[in-house]
Amino acid sequence: MLTEALEVNTESIIFTKNETQRVKLLRALSINQWLKNILIFIPAIFATVAWSFDLLSQLALAFLGFSFIASAVYVHNDITDKKFDAQHPEKKKRSIASGEISIQNARILQFLLIAVGATLLFLISNKVFILGIAYLIINLLYSQVLKQIPLVDLIPIISGYFIRLLIGEDIAEAPLSIWILLMVGLLATYLVLMKRQGDVQLFTTTGVQHRKTVVFYSKMNLPVTTMILIHAITLVFAAYIHFVFSQYPEEFSNLPYLTIPLTYIAIFSYHRSAQKRIQKDPISTLLRNPLSLICVGISFILLVVTLYPALG
């Protein structure tokens, strides 16, 4: 009976003719969060590896496979936090929190995402598969236990950014720069603390305690901490530009220095937007900030032109 029910529900999820239901299922995947998985491409880009169709296809496959695993984690978190999300001004609109998708269908969707994502990662290499499963296990532990422990709750989220880089490093066979690791670590810490700041604001204005750790974080001066992190990210980025690109030919070596003020403007502009949209998702805040997107885009082009002179 259980097997038959699973088959029926799985079929209804995949082959549903209800377009509205498909949209609800897609919303549950948090596809906008897949933007974070671009980090998988970073090691190959900044190590100036010899690009080939095989490398690009493996990176793309890893991006897709990891995105499915990440979506499974988002679905699991939404299932676990359904009661709390229903009280949140933004999260209550999510498919699971609002009741648009049943818990049973959400669990089936989660299983399918894990199965497909893990299979795709396994096709690349054993190490990539292990890293993907490690990400899944760490986040399941976070959802069930670790998110209740102040400061420790930051580690699983930050580690997710590093796992993305490690997957890209393994595929490209390109060692990661310590500067990139530092920048990503600081940026991840900043983004997590901004979310905690949103939890604190919600707690102080409405009394809704979305997380048990909110009392601890309410005693921290998070606005000052996040501003310190913004300047730390910029300083580390400036050091990376100086130590890496000062050795390039003179006609290219000056271009990367232009990215330092652009990076600061991008982060600071995002920070101002995030303060106004403190309850919003970081990715949606970024995508609604044209100035940050333009600065990041120009910086990326300048760095790529320097790293790959033939493109200039």
Score class of each variant (00 low, 15 high):
residue 37 N to W: 03
residue 51 W to M: 07
residue 85 D to M: 04
residue 63 F to R: 13
residue 280 K to V: 15
residue 51 W to I: 06
residue 40 I to C: 11
residue 41 F to A: 10
residue 274 A to S: 10
residue 178 I to V: 13
residue 7 E to Y: 07
residue 63 F to Y: 14
residue 242 H to Y: 15
residue 13 I to E: 01
residue 274 A to D: 03
residue 31 I to H: 14
residue 32 N to S: 15
residue 296 V to Q: 07
residue 153 D to N: 02
residue 103 I to A: 14
residue 130 I to Y: 08
residue 134 A to S: 08
residue 240 Y to P: 01
residue 269 S to T: 07
residue 111 F to D: 00
residue 114 I to D: 07
residue 200 V to S: 01
residue 69 I to R: 09
residue 302 L to H: 13
residue 223 P to N: 06
residue 175 P to I: 03
residue 122 F to L: 07
residue 100 E to I: 11
residue 228 I to N: 15
residue 113 L to A: 05
residue 81 D to F: 12
residue 168 G to E: 02
residue 253 S to F: 06
residue 79 I to Y: 07
residue 193 L to G: 03
residue 153 D to K: 00
residue 55 L to T: 12
residue 161 Y to R: 01
residue 257 Y to V: 10
residue 75 V to N: 03
residue 86 A to G: 07
residue 152 V to L: 05
residue 79 I to N: 02
residue 305 V to N: 14
residue 47 A to E: 05
residue 56 L to T: 14
residue 41 F to D: 00
residue 182 L to M: 12
residue 18 N to Q: 14
residue 243 F to Q: 14
residue 97 A to V: 05
residue 131 L to F: 03
residue 241 I to F: 06
residue 201 Q to C: 06
residue 63 F to W: 10
residue 255 L to H: 13
residue 285 T to H: 11
residue 295 C to E: 12
residue 186 L to V: 02
residue 241 I to L: 03
residue 175 P to F: 06
residue 78 D to T: 14
residue 240 Y to H: 10
residue 193 L to R: 08
residue 81 D to A: 08
residue 32 N to A: 14
residue 247 Q to M: 13
residue 187 L to C: 09
residue 210 H to Q: 14
residue 50 A to E: 15
residue 304 V to W: 10
residue 249 P to D: 12
residue 192 V to I: 09
residue 47 A to Y: 04
residue 210 H to G: 12
residue 118 A to V: 11
residue 284 S to L: 12
residue 31 I to Y: 13
residue 20 T to G: 06
residue 244 V to W: 11
residue 14 I to G: 01
residue 267 I to P: 03
residue 75 V to D: 00
residue 282 P to L: 06
residue 36 K to W: 13
residue 124 I to N: 01
residue 9 N to A: 08
residue 16 T to S: 10
residue 130 I to A: 10
residue 302 L to Q: 06
residue 220 M to N: 08
residue 79 I to P: 00
residue 24 K to L: 10
residue 159 S to E: 00
residue 232 A to E: 04
residue 15 F to N: 09
residue 260 I to H: 02
residue 31 I to M: 08
residue 132 G to A: 11
residue 224 V to W: 15
residue 42 I to Y: 13
residue 105 N to I: 09
residue 18 N to I: 08
residue 61 L to P: 09
residue 244 V to A: 08
residue 80 T to C: 15
residue 134 A to P: 02
residue 59 L to H: 08
residue 30 S to Y: 12
residue 188 A to L: 01
residue 188 A to Q: 04
residue 96 I to Q: 06
residue 173 E to L: 13
residue 16 T to I: 04
residue 189 T to Q: 05
residue 205 T to M: 11
residue 149 I to D: 02
residue 278 I to L: 09
residue 61 L to Y: 10
residue 112 L to W: 09
residue 270 Y to M: 04
residue 93 K to P: 02
residue 226 T to H: 01
residue 231 H to V: 13
residue 108 I to Y: 00
residue 260 I to W: 08
residue 136 L to G: 06
residue 116 V to S: 11
residue 113 L to S: 10
residue 239 A to N: 10
residue 93 K to C: 01
residue 279 Q to H: 13
residue 293 L to W: 09
residue 128 V to T: 13
residue 250 E to S: 15
residue 129 F to Y: 07
residue 220 M to W: 14
residue 250 E to H: 15
residue 163 I to N: 01
residue 230 I to Q: 04
residue 110 Q to V: 09
residue 70 A to F: 05
residue 264 Y to P: 02
residue 36 K to P: 07
